[in-house]
Amino acid sequence: MQTNPLGHNVDLAERAYRIRRNALLMGEVQGQGYIGQALDIADVLATAYFHAMSYRPEDPHWEERDRFLLSNGHYAIALYAALIEAGIVPEEELETYGSDGSRLPMSGMAAYTPGMEMSGGSLGLGLSIGVGMCLGLKRNGSSSRVYTLFSDGELDEGSVWEAIMSAAHWKLDNLIGIIDVNNQQADGPSSQVMAFEPLVEKLQAFGWFVQRIDGNDIEAVRSAFDAARDHAEPKPRMIVCDTRMCKGVPFLEAREKNHFIRVDEHEWQMALEALDAGRKA
């Protein structure tokens, strides 16, 4: 089994906790935003950055790194939280999130942030880039992998299915797709906006090795990443993650789900405390 290049010894749950904490601190700067998503995807990002991927924090362009594509660019707040925890972005920059002159804009863009490998914001593009990167890596004889995170809303875009079909055609076993099924998009629950199930069967029929897990069960996430890496068939790999928006902050979890949430000024401290309570428990 591949060992983590950074020799990480802090356990993944603690990493996930700190990613959530970073995200809340950034959310507080704007008073609102994609907090629910950051909290739902923290366990997946902790596993990607502290278990699965090879990279050098001091050299984000290191050729042999595994690539991470954030197709759902509005999840930038979540990725920044992970990049800070991974030592790629300095922690001091937290407080600049989404402000004028910041390297951490609200929508992820490659030119702004070390470790951000694509410019998102327009949804449904990441997996196509992933296909090209995987083709290029193979052409270069590289063993690096490309992890591409995208959202259940992105499943509505035809371009995503073009990439899904093509990745199987090209037998891209170096491509690992991760779908955040939080059952939410801009106008409401994803399953009501555009019915997308049965997802596993569809992806399998398209020629992918597919696993579906509870994306907030960190052990399940870890074994899925391992299985995606170790799988023998020459197929692209998809990890379908069912997640819970606002995970880790019970009073926000209990709120009506929303794509873009506003949290009152006094509630940020409460949210941090609620998160802390879960950590000790």
């Binding site: 700067v29 704007q30 008073g31 609102q32 935003g33 984000p60 600049t96 989404g98 402000s99 004028d100 002159g101 910041s102 390297r103 804009p105 609200m106 490659a110 030119a111 702004y112 942030t113 070390p114």
Partner: peptide, 22 residues
């Protein structure tokens, strides 16, 4: 990414409040 496009290089000018995107 060393010189990203959004850096305010306007040092010395009167400090303006940092506005937020939202």
């Amino acid at each position: 990414t060393d010189t990203h496009p959004n850096v305010d290089t306007n040092e010395g000018a009167s400090p303006k409040p940092r506005l937020k995107t939202s």
